[in-house]
Every structure is written in C-alpha cells, then in structure tokens.
Design a protein around this nucleic acid. Sequence first.
DNA 1: TCCCTACCGTGATG
DNA 2: GTACATCACGGTAGGGA
Length: 821
Amino acid sequence: METDFIPLDYDYFDFQGRNFIRIIGRNSEGKRICAVDSCDVYLWAILKENLSKEEIKKLLGKIEKIELDSKGRKTKVEKVELHEKNFLGKSVKALKIFATNYKDLHEIANRLDFPEIEKRRGYDLGFVTHYIIEKKIIPSHRYSISGDVLNNSEEFGGMDSVFDADFFIKMSEAKRIEDKKFAPKILAYDIETDEIKIGDGEILMISLVSENFKKVITWKSSKKKISNVEYVKDEAELLEKFCEYVKKISPDFLAGYFSDGFDLPYLKARAEKNEVKLALGSDGSEPRFSRGIEMTGKIRGIVHVDLLKFIRTAYSQYMQSETLSLNEVANEFLGEKKKDFQLRHSSKIKEGDWEKYFEYNLHDSVLVFNLFEKIWPDILEFSKVMQEPIFEISRNGMSKNVESYILHNLERFNEIPEKKPMHDEIGERMNREKYEGAFVFEPIPGLYEDICIFDFTSSYGSTIVTYNLSKSTFLEHPGKDFYSVESGGEKLHFAKKPGFFPEMLKEIIEKRKEYKRELKENPDDVLKKARSNAFKLLANASYGYQGFFGARYYSREAAAATAAFARKLIKEVIELIGEEGYKTIYSDTDSIAFLINKKTEKQVLEFLKKLNSRLPGIMELELEGFFKRGLWVTKRTGNIGAKKKYALIDKNGKIKIRGFETVRRDWCRLARKVQDKILRMVLDDGNEKNALVYVKEILDKLKKRKIEKLELIIKTQLKKPISEYKNVSPHVIAAKKMEEAGIPMRQGNLVEYYIAETKEKKKLVREKVKLPDEKGEYNTEYYLEHQILPAVENIFQVFGVELNEIIEEKKKSQNKLNRWM
DNA sequence: TCCCTACCGTGATG
DNA sequence: GTACATCACGGTAGGGA
C-alpha cells in the first residue's frame, strides 16, 4: 500500500528483542494511519589520537565480542565500523558500535572502558529522537510512505487488531513530499470537580468540544432536557462515556488547559477510585504520567496537548496578560472571556443553577478549542523546525527546543552529539560564579523632546555569530586566528574558524530575516508568520542556552564573552552617536535612545546607514522609532536616574511605558491607573499642570473613602510553599489566611489582599492584611503613603514639584481653617 | 522603643 | 524538568543606640 501521511505521535515498543517505532498520523483523506518502522541502533566511541591501525583493529575485535544479558534480554554488539567524524569541531576517529536494542546502549557504553577509547557518546538521545535523526521521518511534515498493511496479522504480537487505526502499515519506504494544508482533528476537554486536590472530590461533569460537536456529560441535577447535555447514572459511567466519545471522535489532538496538572490526572485518580479503566489510548491503554516536578500526561495514539505549557514557553514573555489563567489568555488571544459562574461545592448548588454550571463548563472547552486553532500554526511550525513531535515541543522549554534543533542538525557538520551533563557536573556548573551581563546607561532624570531609538537586531544571537562564540570554538590557550574579549578580569579567546553552533545560529538568523521580509510583503501569511516567530524565539534563546547549566553545549565562557562583546560594541556605538552630534540619554543591553538635536529624521536615517556599514560581522542596528517626548525619573532612594523605568509618546500619541508601577501587577489598581493617567497627561501636555489637578482629586477621593475597595486589592504571586519563606511578608500572611479559609494554596497561586484600618496601632504592614471579602475599612494612610504617592512622586519631581510639600501645605491650611471655624 | 541597614522577595527590562 | 544578568522597590529581620 502507498499513502501520504503526516506523522504526529511517536512511541516505541520492543518485539523479539528489537526496538520498533510506532508513528500515528493522518493522510490527506482523513484516515488514521499507524506506521511501524525500525532503524539501526548504535553509539559512538571516540578514539584517542595517534592510535595505530593495528591497535584499532585489535580494539574492534574486542568490542565485537561484547555480549549482554541484562534483564533477561540477551543481546550483543552486532557490528563495529570505523568513521572519520567531528567532535566539538575537532576531527576524530570514532567507532560506530551497533547494538540490538537501544536500551542496551548504556550497558554497552559501560563495558567500553578500554584505554584506547577517549569518550563514549550518542546513547542518551532517547529512541524517538534517535529514530528521527536516523530515518529523517520528521514530525509534522508530509511523507509518501509504502509498506505492507497488517490486518489481523501475527506480526508484532497481533498489535494491529488491538490498535484503533484505519491502516496499520509496516513501513518499508518513506519520502518527503510537498506539503499542503493540514487541518487536524481537535478535541478540547475540561472537567469540573468538587475539590481542587487531585482525586479528592467527585468529577461532576466533563465538557467536550470538537468541530461541529459540543457536549457536556454529567450525572448531576435532575434530568431536565438541555441541548448538548447528556446525563449518565454516576461518576463511573461518566468516565466510561468520556472514553467512548474520545474513541468515537478519534481526534489527533486532545487539548486541555492545565490538563497535565489537573484534568487528566484527576480523571485517572477518579477512575482508580471507581475501579473503571480510563481507556483513552488507541490500544485501550490508560494515560501514563511522568514523574517529576511537573507532571505530563501521555495518551498512546492521541497527542495530549496542555495549551498552558506551550503558551508559557512560546508567548508569555511577549504577552500583556498578568496571569496565564484561561480567562486572561483567551481574552488576549481571542477577545473572549470565561462565562460568569461562582464556583462552589456541588452540595451548595441549587437545582436551577446547574444549567449555568453546564454552560460554564462547556464554554471553557470552547475557549480551549478556539485557542488551539489560533495557536496551531505556531505549534506546527515549532514541531517542523525543532524536528521533534508535538507532544514534546508543546511541553519543552526554550533551552530544550534549542537543543533539539542542534541535535537534529548535527549531521550536516559530521558532528557526534555531546552528552547531557551528569548530576555532579550540573552541580559544578550551578556553583560557578555569575558573569557580568548587559550594560545599562544611567539616565539623567527629565522630560525630553524629539527622541530616536536604535536597537540591534537579535543582538546576542548576532554577537555569537559575529565572534564565533561557542563551546567548540573556545580556546583555552589562544592559537593563531582568534577573537578575544575581556570578561571578569580575564581574557577569553575564540577561534575564527567557524564552529557548528554559530554556523547554525547564522542560518537561523538568516531564515528569520528571510521570512520576516516575505511577511512584510504578505502580512496575512499565517504560516510565514509562525515560521518567522519560531526562528526568532530560537535565535533569542540561543544565548541563554549556552549559559544554561543543563545544556549539552554549555559554555559559560561563550555566554560571558557574548555579554562582554555586546557591552563593548554598544558603548562604541554610543560614542559614535555622540561624535555625530547627538546626545544619548538612555541605553539598555541592545537599544540606545538619543536626542535628535534639531536634525531631520532623514539625516538620522542616513546616519543609521553609515553606522551599519561600520559594524562588525552580521551586527546590525535598526530603527525602533522616533518619539515626540520621553520621561525618565529618579530612583526613590538616592537622587540618581532610575534604570529600566521610562515612558515615551510617539507622534501619533501612542504611549509606551516600561518598568513603571503601571505595568507591575503587584501594585493596586488605583496606583497603577493614577500613574498611567499622569504619565499620559505629562507626555501629552509637556508639563505637569493638569496632572497635578488630577492627582489632588484622587487623593481627595481616597481620603473621603470614595474609592472602591476593588481598586485597592494588591495581588502577589506565591512563588514557593508557604513554609519556605524566611520573611513573613504581607502576601504570605494573606496566603495563610486563605489556607485557613479552606482554599489550598500552592506555589504559583496569585494571592489577593488589601491593607485595612486596625483598632490598635500596628507597626507592621502584615498585621493589617485582610482578604478581599474580609470585612473592614481600607487604610487610607497606607494607600496614600505607600501606593499613590510613591507611584507619582518622582514624576512630579522632574518638574520641580514636591508633592509631599503640597499635601503638607494643604493640611496646614486646613488646620488653620479649622481653627477659624 | 526607635532607627538604620542588610537581606528577602517579586516582578519588571532586555 | 530549568535560557541569561540587571534593576527598582517594598517589606521584614535584627542589631545598635
């Protein structure tokens, strides 16, 4: 049989002592294909230098004789070949040692303790990754495959008859073909339960949403007929019905939100309690969970995607949302919110409210479904670019993604993969001293007019490429042709001969530029946008990757040198900008803000061109924008300019605020709103007059308690378990109070509280903490002194206005007035 | 008891 | 499973006066 096919889900099994890959995917007719394949299994033994032919031959003979008997599986080294390879850029002689089973590679590596062998590599990739590298069956691309169709065959122990697929193919050939649009079958799901802790309460309902399919399954409430709602007898039947629908719909993706950490483990736990099998897998198997800090739930044959995880790695740093709750994320991506419903224990839900609860539950799945469709192009491109299955790329952090990209591109450089760091090595790396990071210019506080901002495109990425900075190009002792830079009082040297890491990164940056250019011509091209985005993220993460202690290609020297070269260059550019007659007012890492000093925008752009022609390597400056005004303030402690805090307004009146309390979620809404408004007024008007009137109004309102309590709620994240805090800060007290109220608090939870008036005089803020629904009056003095004034004071200071004095004056005059009356 | 400083902790920038 | 360093600023802990 021959068919086209998009591989989506990969796993492997053993049959007669050998490894087989099982790939589930779909063809263009919408049929579900399960393809089985195998590949060579091997590891590398890198030989010491200057071994004679004789010695190598002898060694080969010894290795070929290795036999294993581990865990009842008898295997042996099948074949050994000698190859000319590269390892960390150096050419080496290496033995390719073939084995029967991937799981035996570790054991074989342990047996290779011959003095002729320098290093053993390539046995810690995982079989799926190894297979993809070996056979080039890259996830999410389209292939034409051929092979025998298995139908009730004895082969693989009769697996084909158990496995739910339209075709079960023993793959004999595969070739990549031109891609066309692929619309996967998605099923979104969401559960509602009585308790938050996994398995503690009953599952009340499950909602399922797919293309033209909406359903809530429940065993609660009287069986009033409501469209989309299906009633079952009890929780056990609910679980079985859920599995039944999943099987019937047979989706490519089962998508949830925080479903790795909640929905799926909850379902599993309740299934165990009810003694029901949660047969979600295509072969009737139950979901499997990985142990670890963060759980992941895998379903055989269906790709389980927890959207929260992908959103966290791919988007969160560029998002506006203050939390990654479904409500906020859906609002930002789709402009849709969750339905309003006050969640409570089922025993407290009145008969008439159940319908609302069902709607709420169903709508959550609708949001998840729509979210999936929205971010699907990015998921698909990530998978294609990193060449790993969607299950992995949707969960991996960016360091893992960078590493996947590297591993899948090593062969072009004839490179043997480096190993993962062992436990002790990770410890050593973590204990290493921090290196110096970016340069930040200390601004002189003030309101400035006519500002231009330049920044370096992919600054650190371009630096790595320009100066060839990587583990394999780092020179312990400088040789002939090298780049060098000073960092932390020592000189770091890197060979000029291009290394594979900078070379790969160069390709990434070039591709990113190419797709970005194409996107400019055709802004609606979703695919190009996704691809451009994937390469952008990859380029941006590569610097952090080299400094990351868990990286295979970790190089603190390369990371330190990257920061050092970037620091040096930006200082030189600031110098050049000054020589041209402009005045730099601020700079942070890769951007420079300067006054254009009565010159025209055209002149500035010409200067930019001139600058670019003088920059080394692939370093490139681009125009960030021209701005009408900009404001820089002092730090609250000391009279120097605050870094990482400024506000800009462009010619269209568009405002950009960085670092100010306005953009920080741990300040109350009132303080943030007032500061935001004042910044806007000051930037619009160019003076403080109107802003002053406004702030006085607000202060007045606050004193008269005309501000709603909701505006004064402070939100802070609990970053670790309550017991681990050394300092008992207000948010820790609030978290403790919530626990006492029966709300389990875990790290990552957002704590909300306000500061209240107290009968006795209390010194510490934490003694005045109350939960939002706790009775009490808000503490006007606190909000005045610790929220509003701190947020606006130094803005007025720029104009020589001391807000404190004005308030004091007012008090004095009022006192006088009182005396008169 | 008050005051000062070191340190903790969160959440920003890039 | 976990990319990096820099920075502002509120708050508490804890010592000295």
